[in-house]
Every structure is written in C-alpha cells, then in structure tokens.
Write a protein that binds this DNA or RNA. Structure first.
Length: 707
DNA sequence: GTTCTAGAAC
DNA sequence: GTTCTAGAAC
C-alpha cells in the first residue's frame, strides 16, 4: 500500500530480484498487456497465481480499506495476507510522481501532485482485523529497506511473525528532512521501473481533473485537519511508572522487561481508556528499549502504553505529558532519600508527600503498593498535575543491600509480578473513583489557586479550550534532555529555568531598540503607549502584517513570559485586535491571526498580527511559511490561557520550521514555495477546525471562515 | 531577520 | 538552462 511515488514497484522488484521464493507481482499499471488494467484483472491474476502455488505481491495503492478488502477476501485463511505500507512523506511521493510524468510538462506534474494529495487524504492505515496476519508500516527509507530485507530473506516455506510492525504515528506533525530523502540515490536499477509505477492512478484522476485547477482545491470537509493539527489531545488518566527494582535493586533487565510487558498487557485492557507510561531518566535507557521492543512484538496498543525518557517528576512541565498518577519505586520504610527515583519524587513533591504517606502507612513489604493522594500544596500537584503517588516496593536482588533474595529469581520474578499488579491495581482504583481525571480537571484544580490578575469573563472559553501542550515525545524529549543534561537526576528543582539560549546577533536587535527608544524610530511606529509600540513588519509576509512590541526590558521572547506579564499579554492582544478590526473595516475579506513565534529570530517580545492571505513577495522560504502555519506559531489566545493557568507558555520545537509545506486551509501538501503560493492564492477551503475555535481567527462578524 | 550563492532539482 | 533550496555571513 502506498501513494503513487511511494516506491511500491521498486519494493517488489528489489525483493523479487534476490528472493528464492516464487513471487508474482500483480500490478494494475501493466496487467493489461503491459498497459493499465482493471481491478478485476488484478483479482483474477492474483487468484490464479496463488493456485499455482506462487506468492503474490499486489502492487496497487490500496490506500483505503474498501479498495483492499476484495484482495483480502480473495482467498481463505490458508493463504496468509500481509500488508506492507509505504507511508512516506507526501512531498516525497509527489516529487517522484511529478518526475515520472514530467515529459508532459508542468501541467502533468501539477496533476500528479493533485492526485497524490487527494489520495493521501483518503489514506486509512490497515488494521489487523481487516484480515492481515502481519502489517509493516514504513515511514522512511530506513523502514523501507528493513522491510525489503525481511521479505527478501523469506524462503519458499518460511513464515514471518504475525502482528503490527512499525510506528503508528500517522498523525506525526513533523516530517523532516525531505531533502535528505531526495538526496539519497535511488537504489541501482530502479530508474527503469520507476517510470511505470501506478501511472494509471495519475492518468485516471488527472482526466477527471482536467477542467479543474492545477492543484487540488479541496472544498470537501478537510479531513486532513485531524492529521496535521492540534485537534486531538490526550485527555486521559495516565500512570507514569519507573522500572521497579532494576536500578538499585539490581534486578535483571531482560527478566524485568518481560514482566513489565506481561503485566502491562494484562492491565492495559482492564484499565479502559487509561494509559500507562514507563519512564526512565536515561536517554539510552536499556530497559526502555527492551520493553519497547517486546511491547511492539506483542502488539500492545501504543496509545495505551508508551515508553518515555525523561524526569518522572517533570513530565508535564518538561515533557508536555500530563500524568495523573506517578509510581514511586520506594524503600520499605517509605522514607525520602536513598537516591534514585525515590529521592527525586520525595524531593519534588515536598514535605506534603511525606506527611500524606505517613498518614497512610508506616512501611511497605516487597510486592506491595500503596496509593497516596497528593495534597494540593505539593508542587508536584500544582506544577505537574499529579494527583496521586503510588509507592511500590519491588524485590531486592542487590547482594550489597540488606534483605536481598540471594539471586533467587523464582522468588524475585514472583515478587516483581506482584509489585506491578499491586501498582496497576492501585492505579485502577484511582481511575474508578476519580471517573475521568483529565487535563480539564487539572485545569480546574489549578484555577482554584488564587489568580488575582485573571478576570472571570472567559471561563466558558477555558472549558472548551484545548488543554495546553500536545504530547510530542520525540521532539519534546530531545529539547528536554538537552536542557537537563544527561546526568541531572534526583536533585529536584532549580536547574530547569535556564535553557540553552542563543545569543542575539547584532541584526536581531532592531525591535529591541525600537521598543526601548521609540523616539529614534518615529518614522516606522504607528502607535505608541507606555506598554507597547506598534509597527508594520519591515518584511510583511501577508497583505497586512504588523508587530505589537512589549516595552519591557528583559522580555526578549515568549520563553521569558511569566504570570506577572499576563496583563501585558492581554494589552498586546487588545491592541493587535484593534488594528485587525481596523483593517477589517477597510477590507472585509481579510482574516487575521494573532500570535507569537515559539523561538523568535528578533529580540524583544513581539506579537504578530497577520492576515491569512500570505500574499507577499517577502514570503520566500519554508521557515517563513511554517513559522506562521505550524504549531510553532502560538496563538495569542492560547498563550494568554496557558500563562494564566500554568505561569508559562508552551513553546514548540524549531523542527516544525522544516515541516513539509501544507496549505493552511485545506492542508494539502506542496513540493515547494512557488507551488504552495500558487495554491494558496486561490484556495478557499474552510480553515481547520482548530483555528475556528476560541477566537484564534479574527474576521468580520457574520462572515464565516467555515464556508 | 535578510541577502547571497553553490549546487541540487527540475 | 532555469528554478529552488539550504546554509553561511551579516
């Protein structure tokens, strides 16, 4: 399965060239005497090849379930069905498709892009319950090569293990480094096969689209919105737990990982929609990779069980992962200290946890766990949204410590199983009694704290608002580890405020100087008050693009913003809004968005007020586009919400800037800036749902960005 | 932030 | 040959 240009034919060819298995490739592009044929021809061809005892590749896009269902149904269970999904970046597929139809000139190329876009919008990843014994999802060239190797090595009577392989993050927000893919040489000999990959799809769709514009204008419901935007947020009870007994208690990692996976598998379904997260501080954690591999083998739902490298006491503030409960691998006295996770959690939770723990129990025996509700005075509660700590004691295999099991792994494994059962039972009891402890609850809890600066007028918005940060493990984790350094551990607080900051270059000082010395810049300033200065962006990226500068020394960027700046943020928003409305009164077709760059290039906090036409000669590169049209752009309304609730705004990774180019309305992908600009100049699709909410878009009253 | 430009992509 | 991107310099 895969879009045109994803490399299906190449895949088959490379396998068949070396494989000792009798393969037959059924390709709709060539099945009609070397020309494109029909689906029925493919079905018949496949059936007869199977009857002859051959193995068959169905070389066909098969992106939606309906298309592939007939092939799965073709033969009974005696024939094993596999899916290999070439889920490569849209841009790469487009680029290859355009290349192979290029002889017809640009128009053809443009249609290829349109077709790939359209097809990808219909993409449904296959599921095992469609009838596949094995599914392999390839998301980059490395995955593809691995799958090629796997199938090449498959002898005539060999079998592959069943299950789902490959990451399922179909809604990955960042697809980086397209150029890296393109720079790679195609495998030798593929150039002659590439030319006949699925032209039928392109031709037939291209014919249908002959009268339409060169690029897809999706006037349909923008399905891609859910894939590329921030709409879906995890809002579910989550337990973060460290690996029990494998650190100080020296429990064998391989055995421990087996038990973790076994117990997770047992509980993951009992827990309903709740989620389990195995956490380890180390970036190269052996236990994490063992567990990850074994969980994948067992096909455990990756939405319900994840592994996460990071500091368990800062999962929300540093990792963007909100966990309702965290497990503490403690000692039998339930006392702080001793190093490791126990020391870290007691230290981060403050004396409140010690008191609450004492009130619950005096000691703990191996294999047991106790649930301790965390008082709201604990920083773990207020900062991280953790409502419960579950202390758990595992078996001790460390001969240097008292009461060790003398290498008795029969007993050790039994106790470790008990420990995880007790832990997950404890979590289950929280889930049951709390109903749905969610981010919303977390936010409600936070709101209980006195917030003098906060008006009560927008409470309604808050309830609907999408809770703060998305979970984006890889990105988050990378920057997170960079900040913490590899060995920052149990010491607790104090080292997280300072991030690695680039120094400002001389060219980055212009806005700072304007804000601090407005009198020197009278010619460009269009409004000035004690709090802010407003000016037109020197290189506007849209018809209307202005900046509202904060006039506070030391407030260089969003990362510097704290709760004390809430009033200022609201002032800036108000000023920006006023200007947007002024522009709207002159041109009622404009639509505005107000927000900040997560990592600005210019010093001095500045709010962008920018019209959504992006019609500008200054918009020249990917960074320009993505800085306004990826999660890197933080809407002012969200920043205000986050700062008022958490005291800081979430910043998104700079990697978003190299994300593939997608239309901000219909979310279609485009191979380069000129093509993107040609598309957006006429795309009238409705904006993604995310932008239609909470006043993120500013437009004329009565006008509807939805139509 | 932009400009410049080599070299890749087309 | 022309278009486009990415990285360095500023």
């Amino acid at each position: 399965m895969g879009a045109p240009g994803s490399g299906k034919s190449t895949f088959c060819d490379l396998v068949m060239r070396v494989s000792t298995r009798p393969w037959v490739r059924i390709c709709q592009d060539t099945i009609g005497n070397g020309k494109a044929g029909t689906k029925n021809q493919c079905l018949t061809g496949a059936a007869s090849a199977l009857k002859e005892g051959k193995s068959v590749f169905i070389d066909r896009c098969n992106l939606d379930r309906e298309q592939r269902a007939d092939f799965v149904k073709l033969v009974g269970p005696q024939v094993e069905k596999h899916a290999v999904v070439l889920d490569l970046p849209a841009k790469l597929c487009i680029s290859r498709s355009v290349k192979r139809t290029g002889h017809e000139g640009n128009l053809q190329g443009g249609k290829a892009a349109a077709v790939v876009n359209r097809m990808l919008q219909k993409k449904e990843l296959p599921k095992l319950n469609e009838g596949y014994a094995r599914i392999t999802v390839c998301q980059d060239e490395k995955d593809v090569q691995a799958a090629i190797n796997t199938y090449t090595a498959l002898g005539p009577s060999d079998k592959l293990p069943p299950g789902f392989f490959g990451q399922k993050n179909s809604d990955a927000k960042v697809q980086l480094g397209i150029m890296k893919f393109l720079k790679k040489k195609d495998p030798p000999g593929c150039s002659d096969t590439v030319s006949n990959v699925s032209p039928e799809n392109i031709q037939s769709h291209a014919t249908k689209e002959r009268d339409s514009n060169q690029v897809v204008e999706s006037h349909e419901e923008p399905k891609m919105a859910s894939a590329g935007s921030n709409i879906s947020l995890e809002n579910i009870p989550t337990l973060a737990f460290p690996s029990i007994s494998t650190a100080d208690f020296h429990f064998n990692l391989d055995k421990a990982s087996d038990i973790i996976v076994e117990k997770v598998e047992e509980y993951v379904n009992k827990l309903g929609n709740a989620r389990l997260v195995l956490v380890d501080l180390s970036q190269n954690s052996k236990i994490l990779s063992l567990v990850k591999a074994k969980a994948a083998e067992k096909n455990i739902d990756s939405k319900k069980f994840l592994t996460f490298a990071g500091n368990i006491t800062k999962l929300y503030s540093e990792g963007g992962l909100h966990c309702t409960a965290i497990a503490n691998a403690t000692n039998w006295r339930l006392k702080p200290g001793g190093g490791g996770v126990n020391a870290a959690i007691f230290s981060a939770a403050g004396p409140a946890l010690e008191t609450a723990t004492k009130a619950t129990a005096g000691s703990l025996s191996p294999g047991k766990a106790i649930v301790v509700p965390l008082p709201s005075s604990s920083p773990l509660f207020s900062r991280e949204g953790v409502t419960h700590v579950i202390h758990v004691l595992g078996p001790n295999m460390n001969p240097q410590r008292p009461n060790h099991l003398n290498n008795d792994y029969v007993k050790g494994c039994q106790i470790l199983r008990e420990a995880y059962s007790a832990l997950f039972d404890g979590f289950a009891s929280i889930v049951r009694t709390q109903g749905e402890p969610s981010k919303d609850n977390f936010e409600k809890e936070l709101k209980r704290e006195p917030q003098p600066e906060q008006g009560s007028t927008n409470g309604d918005q808050k309830a609907k608002r999408e809770a703060a940060p998305e979970v984006d493990m890889n990105k988050k984790y990378k920057s997170f580890v960079k900040e913490l350094g590899p060995n920052v551990g149990s010491s607790g607080d104090g080292n997280t405020g300072e991030q690695t900051r680039k120094a400002w270059g001389s060219w980055a000082q212009a806005l700072y100087d304007t804000a601090m010395h407005p009198e020197r810049h009278k010619n460009i300033i269009i409004e000035k008050s004690d709090d802010v200065v407003v000016l037109n962006d020197l290189y506007p990226k849209a018809q209307k693009h202005l900046l509202v500068l904060a006039r506070v020394e030391g407030l260089d960027r969003l990362a510097d913003v704290q709760k004390e700046h809430l009033t200022l943020l609201k002032t800036m928003h108000g000023v920006g809004l006023k200007w947007a409305e002024m522009f709207l009164s002159e041109n009622n077709s404009l639509i505005f968005r107000l927000g900040y760059h997560s990592v600005p290039s210019m010093r001095q906090l500045h709010l962008h007020v920018i019209s959504q036409d992006f019609d500008s000669k200054h918009l020249k590169n990917k960074k320009h586009w993505n800085s306004f049209n990826s999660p890197f752009f933080r809407d002012s309304v969200d920043v205000i919400d986050e700062v008022s609730q958490n005291g800081r705004a979430t910043l998104k990774d700079e990697n978003f800037l190299s994300m593939e180019l997608r239309c901000h309305r219909c979310r279609s992908a485009h191979p380069n800036i000129p093509r993107l600009k040609a598309h957006i100049s006429s795309c009238q699709a409705s904006f993604p749902a995310f932008l239609l909410q909470n006043g993120r878009l500013v437009l004329l009253e009565g006008k509807d960005a939805d139509h």
